[in-house]
């Protein structure tokens, strides 16, 4: 039951859903909030805001849009270590993700190759991989902080760890499942190990490897937010936590939106690379 739907019709429905969601949100934000009864002694203790019983209201869509415009108008300002533009914060996160991801690729692709080409290594390393793979990358954080003693590098290490497994497993799988007949062609041509690896196995496994990379970068982008909440200092994750401490909910809504958009772009970028190496029988 998967019939082709014209793009404009899908877009129209999407727009309708968007408008409905916004209206719902606007209505919910308007009805909630207001004043609440506050214990006078407590009010005296904490001061003005609490004394009037003023809650921070959940921001309305219009307020969020306004704040988004404000943030995007000047995304790269730096006013001291705790007040930097949203573009700078996302930049830091992207830098960490890229560094961790590239390091992971540098390790995972060659090792995956070895594992994929050697059934012995595959069987020997499989238990380690199976045990380590399901571990939340954040569980490595204390060990990383203890051994590396640098929070920025520790965040990169956590990204490295979480990006490693999908690439490693997919590379190994892709290499191991290269069509027998192509390997036989290489053998009858006396192509040699390096030439076979480079001209036959790598291109044959490239789509599978790229799929692993795509999964890896997705996970890395998920993990970076949490990692930066822990290590602090810079990055979109830290920024989210900071805005929570400031109780600026509009900023958090915006952060969610931007994290989603950047994650989408990362996925699309790797999808474009995957199309370059894709082959069709």
């Amino acid at each position: 039951m998967n019939k082709q739907v014209p793009a404009w019709r899908a877009a129209l429905v999407a727009l309708g859903i968007f408008v409905a969601l916004m209206a719902l949100w606007e209505a919910a934000a308007t009805s909630g909030g207001g004043t609440a009864a506050v214990d006078p002694e407590y009010a005296a203790l904490v001061g003005q805001a609490a004394a009037t019983g003023g809650q921070t209201p959940f921001p309305r869509p219009s307020a969020v849009a306004l704040r988004l415009w404000e943030l995007l108008r000047d995304p790269f300002y730096i006013r001291g270590p705790n007040d930097q533009g949203i573009g700078i914060q996302i930049g830091y996160s992207l830098l960490r993700v890229t560094a961790g991801f590239l390091l992971a690729a540098l390790v995972a692709v060659p090792f995956g190759f070895l594992i994929g080409m050697s059934p012995l290594l595959n069987a020997a390393l499989n238990p380690f991989i199976q045990v380590l793979r399901p571990v939340s990358p954040l569980a490595w954080m204390p060990l990383a902080l203890y051994t590396i003693k640098d929070s920025a590098v520790s965040a990169i290490f956590v990204i490295f760890i979480c990006a490693l497994w999908p690439m490693l497993l997919n590379t190994a799988f892709g290499v191991a499942s290269v069509r027998r007949e192509w390997l036989n062609v290489a053998r009858t041509l006396e192509a040699g190990t390096l030439k076979t690896a480079w001209r036959v196995i790598l291109p044959a496994a490239a789509p599978t490897i790229l799929t692993g990379m795509r999964i890896s970068i997705g996970i890395a982008w998920l993990v970076i937010v949490a990692a930066e909440m822990l290590v602090g200092g810079t990055g979109i994750g830290y920024w989210v936590w900071n805005q929570w401490n400031n109780l600026s909910l509009a900023d958090i809504v915006i952060a969610i939106l931007l994290i989603g958009v950047v994650g989408l772009l990362l996925d699309r970028a790797l999808g474009a690379v995957a199309r370059l190496v894709a082959w069709q029988e």
Partner: peptide, 20 residues
Amino acid sequence: NGPSLDRAVIFQGHALMPWM
């Protein structure tokens, strides 16, 4: 003693590399 360029094989499936 093993495969050689001197004995070329035409395979049952064409065995062409699809990326080339």
